[in-house]
Amino acid sequence: MEITFEHVTHSYNADGPTASLGLDDVSLTIKDGLFTAIVGQTGSGKSTLVRHINALLKPTSGIVKIGSRVIDSETSNKNLKSLRKQVGMVFQFPESQLFEETVEKDIMFGPINFGATEDQAKESAQKMIQMVGLDESYLSKSPFDLSGGQMRRVAIAGVLASDPETIILDEPTAGLDPVGRQEIMDMFKGLQKNGKTIVLITHNMDDVANYADDVAVIHSGKLIANGLPKDIFNNNDLLKNDLLTLPKSAEFAKKLSQKGFSFSKLPITIDELGTEIKQQLNGD
């Protein structure tokens, strides 16, 4: 499903004296089947942007197209279920959405709301708990007895259980340990390889370099850059103005270039960096 923003502006409390602009004339295409990263400082409008994709927010002006659905300021709040089934959303600290008595019931909550039968939902719960790296014995536990990291995984399973075509992730790994973070990110990359569209909000530039096919940079409600990760991380204007930081590999390459190495384009992943160093050392 391709997602298109056309001149989308969103203003919070539009009529009140405390109106503030969340998005300012954003036009952006999120391509079908790609892994798109959205980066930007805290409060820049990243979360506001993605909440338009499943119509939790509606544009004040402009339109958002999600597949064949068009959302504008006039769109009614009813009949949004089919859209929300297609677009799954993992919020920041999603563990705060858990409420059921057992993990299984909580994972089944989404599918049943979207019209699945009890059996289908159960089957889905069994599949999803394994996908997020927990075994089936967790299904009968109370979600409130789990550790923070396990709760996070259950919450993510609860979103994935409805089998959405597009998955929106708002800093899904914030606060997780490094191993857990990599497992979760690898799982999302795997989902993308199976045909899902992924949209990831993140502050971690290494995740952008390692997983994303496309990057959008948001700054005070405006889209200021959009392109391939390697192009974005070589955009000196963005880096100079502190609108973006470099992934570790690019940071390392930069230091190497002060010691005599030369890179036409900064390598952004460890593999790229390794290949470059090998070539340059052998070339000497």
Binding site: R51, N54, L56, K78, K81, R84, K85, V87, G88, M89, F91, P94, S96, Q97, F109, G110, N113, F114, G158, V159, S162
Partner: peptide, 15 residues
């Protein structure tokens, strides 16, 4: 917090 939780449950199909 309420807005956030409502949004999260809406995204899971609660009307």
């Amino acid at each position: 917090e309420t807005t956030k939780i409502m949004d999260a449950q809406r995204a899971r199909g609660v009307d």
